[in-house]
């Protein structure tokens, strides 16, 4: 399956800049000279203030967006279009509301040309693996937010992605459900062994889940610093956050991040003040 060199990192961004043109013709730089590398089977979290280009980074890796300059490589090859080895979990519900749970989970294999029988067989397994057995024929609107997220996870994991990209997947959930889903994610990930990029604005979530944490600065987004999380696995989310290593790391990263958040806030305030004068 892997014809490419195994020593290559799973994902590599080299001096990547992404500019786009606004409808009124101004060029905005979302990302500038980003360098990032994710090893095979590594779990990387990306944190940063609002609007620092976290989501853009993921779009570049999926091939939904192209870099203005620099190289984005997946499994040692430049990204050209959507790579079938990639799975993506969205911030907001992206399950198909007109399809049952079972069909939603089977969507990937069906799109990829598997027979209905095989696809539904696999889907049944995955539905029960994420704890939704008995809900196969429910429609998404009949489920809670946490259950819909489980559908989304099953929908992504059924394709057995080698690279898993997650864009603030749990930000819309309440705290208790979020912790359950984080444990669920770590469990699924440890079986799959995919390389993960997990974008979040929740610093504690980043530390609890990841091997390394990238801190981005805003306007335009650049990598400010990278932290290694030396917490043993398997981790239990509800307990890991009370370990001294966790607390210390969380404090250090927060000091780093706080400047960025404040700078971002000031910049936004300035822009709106200028806008008010015009």
């Amino acid at each position: 399956m892997n014809s490419d060199t195994p020593n290559q990192p799973a994902i590599e961004l080299e001096r990547v800049t992404h500019r786009f043109t606004t409808p009124d013709g101004r060029a905005l730089t979302a990302l500038r000279d980003i360098n990032m590398s994710v090893g095979r089977g590594e779990f990387v979290a990306v944190v940063g203030p609002t609007g620092c280009g976290k989501s853009t980074t993921l779009s570049l890796i999926t091939g939904l967006a192209r870099p203005s300059s620099g190289i984005v490589q997946v499994m040692g090859k430049p990204v050209a279009g959507i790579d079938p080895r990639i799975g993506f979990v969205f911030q907001h519900d992206a399950v198909f509301p007109w399809r049952s749970v079972l069909y939603n989970v089977a969507a990937g294999p069906l799109f990829r040309g598997e027979s209905r029988q095989v696809a539904f067989q696999k889907a049944r397994e995955w539905v029960s693996r994420v704890g939704l057995a008995g809900f196969e024929n429910h429609y998404p609107h009949q489920l809670s937010g946490g259950m819909r997220k489980r559908v989304a996870l099953a929908q992504t994991f059924i394709n057995q992605p080698e690279i898993l990209l997650m864009d603030e997947p749990f930000s819309a959930l309440d705290v208790q459900t979020r912790i359950l889903m984080q444990d669920e994610l770590l469990k699924l990930w440890s079986n799959l062994g995919a390389s993960v990029v997990f974008v979040t604005h929740d610093l504690e979530e980043a530390i609890a889940l990841a091997d390394r944490v990238y801190v981005l600065s805003s306007g335009p987004g650049t990598v400010k610093s990278v932290y290694t999380v030396n917490l043993p696995r398997p981790r239990i989310i509800s307990e890991v956050r009370f370990q001294p290593t966790f607390v210390e790391l969380s404090r250090r990263i927060w000091m780093d991040l706080r400047q960025e958040v404040e700078a971002g806030f000031n910049r936004a305030a300035e822009v709106s003040a200028v806008g008010g004068r015009l």
Partner: peptide, 15 residues
């Protein structure tokens, strides 16, 4: 049509 849904379908492998 929801852009997220379209992006999701494409990544899941839809033509």
């Amino acid at each position: 049509a929801d852009r997220n849904l379209i992006a999701n379908a494409r990544i899941l492998g839809a033509s």
